[in-house]
Design a protein around this nucleic acid. Sequence first.
DNA 1: TTCATAGTTATCGTATACGATTTCGTACTT
DNA 2: AAGTACGAAATCGTATACGATAACTATGAA
Lengths: 235, 235
Amino acid sequence: MTETAVGSSAVESAAALKAHPESKSQQAYAAVKARIVEGAYTPGYRLVLAKIAEDLGFSVVPVREAIRRLEAEGLVKFERNVGATVSGIDPTEYLYTMQTLSIVEGAATALSAPLIDSVAIARARAVNQEMRECLEHFDPVRFTALNQDFHSVLFEHCPNPHILDLVHRGWNRLASLRSSTFRFVPGRAQESVREHEALLQLIEGAADADTIEKAARQHRAATLDAYLAQANPDH
Amino acid sequence: MTETAVGSSAVESAAALKAHPESKSQQAYAAVKARIVEGAYTPGYRLVLAKIAEDLGFSVVPVREAIRRLEAEGLVKFERNVGATVSGIDPTEYLYTMQTLSIVEGAATALSAPLIDSVAIARARAVNQEMRECLEHFDPVRFTALNQDFHSVLFEHCPNPHILDLVHRGWNRLASLRSSTFRFVPGRAQESVREHEALLQLIEGAADADTIEKAARQHRAATLDAYLAQANPDH
DNA sequence: TTCATAGTTATCGTATACGATTTCGTACTT
DNA sequence: AAGTACGAAATCGTATACGATAACTATGAA
């Protein structure tokens, strides 16, 4: 656990199982994606095809394909005859992404809830405990990773892989924006940890789907709201 | 209105505004997508790169890119060293898609509702009236198209393009499956038209977001349920 | 100095070419 | 007759090459 990059599609992870040597286009995709998610390529970074191709030792064709895939996921902006850049930190885009995430995470949580057993709950709780410790040591990077782990545990048996895929895409997008909860709103992280515990109790108590969905949705939405309140103090 | 194909991403439609001659990869994407959505290429159809390239008068490289994009949207399955086929009509996939659609359509409707004016309501009502007429003449293809028109009117001022994009992707996926409401469950279409009217009344009455979201979500979910009930009569 | 313009360079977009892999058909064996 | 092994054809994956486009730079005019 605690990897930052998140496999984006069910199709993709299935393909990864095959013994095949990965296609170069696939390798290029993974490599560039990793650099973006890890922050080596920051928003606005100019992705020159020939340069990346040379770095990887490939030709440009598979690199193009990779970039196009990343574009489809929203991690990259590709303009005709101009080139590709890592998607920027446009606040509007942030809003869209967070709002969409709140919806799909809410749904994913509600759908998964009935399938979460006590073992998973315990594991999630352990992760949440680690998150508390991160707060003390002030380790925002690890905190963000653990936050994904926490929710990943809940989504382990999510009955709808499409929705899970949407969640992962949102996460990767946020990762590319380097938007840790810490950075945007101090204090929100503490609240987040508390909400995690509340969520676990709802799931343990077999609360109805609607209640759980609202709580999960609100959990994400609150982070967005906190950001907006900070960005526009003219409340 | 009443086109069957639905532009899939905000980025894409923005790009379409530029005076640029479309890139060939873009043209290939549009062409193949249209054939899939219109049903010229049915599920399972083998997409041979060289053949498509020859048809369009392009080389294979831009066609590959186009296919990859369609893969990302779930319209095409692309297997390494084997080739691309139009995604199949797996009932499980249908379930996933419909469930996801119910969630994103619900959210899109709720978000859009406060921004829908009386003119738009009237237009939506007119479309719904046309749908009623389709029922009499038994025109399922047009019915499906009008159904998209109806919801498109509601989504016209949707404040979150990401969510709208997800809706469109779902629609295209369903279109590629050739799954008209008619085909799957006779009688469901009539119900659908009634639900449209109910939805309009909720919006006119400025019902709260939660109520509207639930109604819109249920509207889609009911079609899925009807299908499932028919597929597994062992209730 | 600032703006416009022409020429240069960097980069993209696509065609072509060819090696690699899979699939299909055929002959051979049991 | 059924199954296996081999060879041929089809198709894919990627490298290379080159024309097209946009970005940059330098030069000259206002």
